[in-house]
Each structure stands twice: as C-alpha cells, then as structure tokens.
Simulated scan of single mutants.
Amino acid sequence: MNTIRCQIKQVTPFNDAVYQIILKPEIAFDFKAGQYLCVIMGDTDKRPFSIASAPDSEHIELHIGAAVSESYPMQVVKRMQESLQNGTSIEIEAPGGDAHLRHESGRARLLIAGGSGFSYIKSIIEHQIALQQKIPTTLYWGCRTQDAMYYETIARQWHNTYPWMNFVPVIEQASAGWDGKEANLLEQLKSDFISLNGYDIYIAGRFDMVGTAREVFRTMGVEEDHLYGDAFAFIK
C-alpha cells in the first residue's frame, strides 16, 4: 500500500452512531471497488475502513461506525474532526484488501451488509453502475432499526432505477409503516434462499456477524471460492 496525505473535507454524522468522512487525497491513487484504506494513527497503529466511493472518484468517502462505546473508531472520527477544524491533514495507506468486485464475472451477485458494512457494498454497486453492468444483483442490508439504515434512500433509489438491482432492507426492530423485512439478517437469508450455489457473494459488517454468516452459508451450498469479505483474512 502507498502512504498518501489527505485533507479532511467533511465530517458529518449520518445518525448517532455512523459518520460520513470525505477525504481529498493530495495525489490520486488507483483502487478497486470493495477495497479499503488504513488511517495512520501512529507508526504501528493503522486502522482499516472500507472505501465507500467508487474508483475514479475525486474524493474518498468513508462511513465510520463509531458509537460512544466503541472507542477504536471514535478515536479516528475525533482525529478527523480536529484535522478539519485545524486545517491539517492526515495520512492513509491505500489500497488494501482482496475482496474487491470481480467485475469480469457473469455470475449473479448477492451483496450483504450489516450496519456500516454498507460502505463496502456502496463502492461495489456504484462501480457496477459506472460500468453499465446488468448482472442480476441482490442487496441485503441489515440494521437494528430504520434510523440505523442511514443510506436507505439511495439503496431504494438503486432498486427503483435499475431493473437488475433488488434491494431487501432488513431491520430487527420495525415501527409502524416499515416497508421491508423485520428479522435478523442471517435468519432472513436462510428463509429466502434454499441454496447459495451459483452466486458471487460479497459481505461486510462486524467480524462476528461475518464469521457466523460463513458458517451458515456452508450449510446452504456456498462456493467459498466465490465468497468475498475482507473480514475472512482476520477470522480464519
């Protein structure tokens, strides 16, 4: 990975637990949809976050899940806020990760996001749109509440705009008028699919969720050579 200095252009809370960060790299760098970068907090302290923007974007977008109890990501958000206020820059290392979009594959795609894991999926879908691909793609996004589904509007817009795109929103605690599924994300997937054979599957979210998902998918005929998620490099 390359070390790149970035200016902080924006730090905006989506809700009380997820922040949108917009970075402007001093030099452009190439990356693949679905890769990540590391924010350099210290010589041996480099923290990875999925790149939410598609390749060839002028700015780099991050979605950082940073609830008050989660000091690890919140420390990064605070560093970004201080840099924005002071007009200073931060350093990143990029790009990283092997769970990028296999855009040359013609297999149907199943994209699975838990919470702010949507950032990884957003890069992939926006790149598919830029490539004008029409491969059947289904996105499952699971959150605890509707408020936590911070980019619900854009996901529904994809669903309504592109015939090849199917968005299935899943929340655990639904209120009146909710237009989607009310369930645990993995339980909903088990209910909706008899077999996962034949799919390219991309997944992001909390490591414990991704690890559990892989065990569930093994009972559903998943082809692990076509199961992509950077978490798997850390939870072998």
Results as ranks from 00 to 15, higher is better:
Ile92Tyr: 00
Glu152Lys: 11
Ile129Thr: 11
Gln173Cys: 08
Gln35Arg: 06
Thr161Phe: 05
Ala148Pro: 03
Thr44His: 12
Glu126Tyr: 06
Thr219Asp: 13
Asn86Gln: 14
Pro169Cys: 08
Tyr140Gly: 07
Gln157Val: 07
Met149Cys: 13
Asn15Arg: 13
Arg109Ala: 00
Leu196Gly: 04
Lys78Ser: 12
Met149Trp: 06
Met165Ala: 05
Asp45Ser: 06
Asp208Glu: 15
Lys78Val: 13
Gln75Arg: 15
Met80Trp: 02
Asp225Tyr: 13
Thr153Tyr: 14
Lys236Cys: 09
Leu196Phe: 06
Phe29Met: 09
Ser105Arg: 00
Gly117Pro: 04
Ala66Trp: 10
Ile40Ser: 02
Asn184Ile: 13
Asp147Trp: 05
Phe193Ala: 02
Phe167Gln: 03
Ala183Trp: 03
Ile22His: 11
Phe29Tyr: 07
Ile64Asn: 00
Gly211Gln: 13
Thr219Trp: 06
Asn184Ser: 13
Thr88His: 09
His127Pro: 07
Asn2Phe: 09
Pro25Gln: 08
Trp164Arg: 01
Leu186Pro: 08
Ile51Ala: 04
Val76Asn: 01
Ala174Ser: 11
Ala17Cys: 14
Leu111Asp: 00
Gly221Tyr: 11
Arg206Gly: 09
Ser53Gly: 06
Ala176Asn: 15
Ile135Trp: 00
Leu37Asp: 07
His63Ala: 14
Ser116Pro: 05
Leu189Trp: 01
